[in-house]
C-alpha cells in the first residue's frame, strides 16, 4: 500500500497492522525516517514537503513495481508525509514482507534509496536564519546507483 498524506502517522500501529496483514510471510523489515532537529547550518524549525498529487503516487508505485521485479516480496507498505513537519516527527516509513529476511532487507533498502532520489517530493528546510530547498546529497545518488550497478552484473 502507498500512502502520501499531510496526516501524522503512528509507526507502531502501522507496523503492527502491516505485520498482521502480511500473515504467512517469514520476514518483515521496517524502516522509519524522522525529521532531524539539526542540519549543517543550524537548528531546523520545520520541514516543508511538497508533492505532485497523482504523479507522485504513481512515481512511488513504479519504484515499488521495480522492487517486486527484483525480489520475491509478499507485501509492502510505503507511507510518506507531506506538508509541514516538525523535528522528531516521522516523515517516511517503508515496510517489506517476504518469505526470508534477505529479500526483505534488500527491498527495503532499495525502496528507501529510490524514494530519496526518484520519488517526486521536494523538501524545504526552515531554519532560524532562513529557508532553503534541499537536493539529494552525492551520497544519496551513490546509494541509489548501487542498484543500477547490480542490474548489469
Amino acid at each position: 500500500m502507498i500512502r502520501v498524506s499531510t496526516d501524522p502517522f503512528d509507526p507502531g500501529a502501522e507496523l503492527s497492522a502491516f505485520e498482521k496483514s502480511a500473515n504467512g510471510a517469514g520476514a518483515v523489515v521496517s524502516f522509519l525516517g524522522k525529521v532531524r532537529g539539526r542540519a549543517g547550518e543550524g537548528d531546523v524549525k520545520a520541514l516543508y514537503l511538497e508533492h505532485y498529487p497523482g504523479v507522485t503516487e504513481r512515481s512511488i508505485a513504479e519504484i515499488e513495481r521495480q522492487a517486486r521485479k527484483r525480489w520475491a516480496i509478499d507485501d509492502t507498505l510505503i507511507i510518506h508525509r507531506v506538508g509541514e513537519l516538525k523535528p522528531d516527527e516521522p516523515i517516511v516509513m517503508v515496510c517489506v514482507a517476504s518469505a526470508h529476511r534477505r529479500e526483505a532487507f534488500e527491498a527495503a533498502d532499495f525502496l528507501m534509496d529510490y524514494l530519496k532520489t526518484e520519488a517526486m517530493f521536494w523538501k524545504k528546510e526552515i531554519r532560524e536564519d532562513g529557508a532553503s530547498w534541499i537536493e539529494p546529497r552525492e551520497a544519496d545518488y551513490r546509494d541509489a546507483a548501487r542498484w543500477k550497478r547490480d542490474e548489469t552484473e
Binding site: 510518506h80 517516511v92 517526486m120 521536494w122 534541499i134
Partner: peptide
C-alpha cells in the same frame, strides 16, 4: 505543463 527540479524525498 509541470516543471520539476531535482527531487528530495525521504
Amino acid at each position: 505543463i509541470a516543471f520539476l527540479p531535482p527531487v528530495s524525498g525521504g
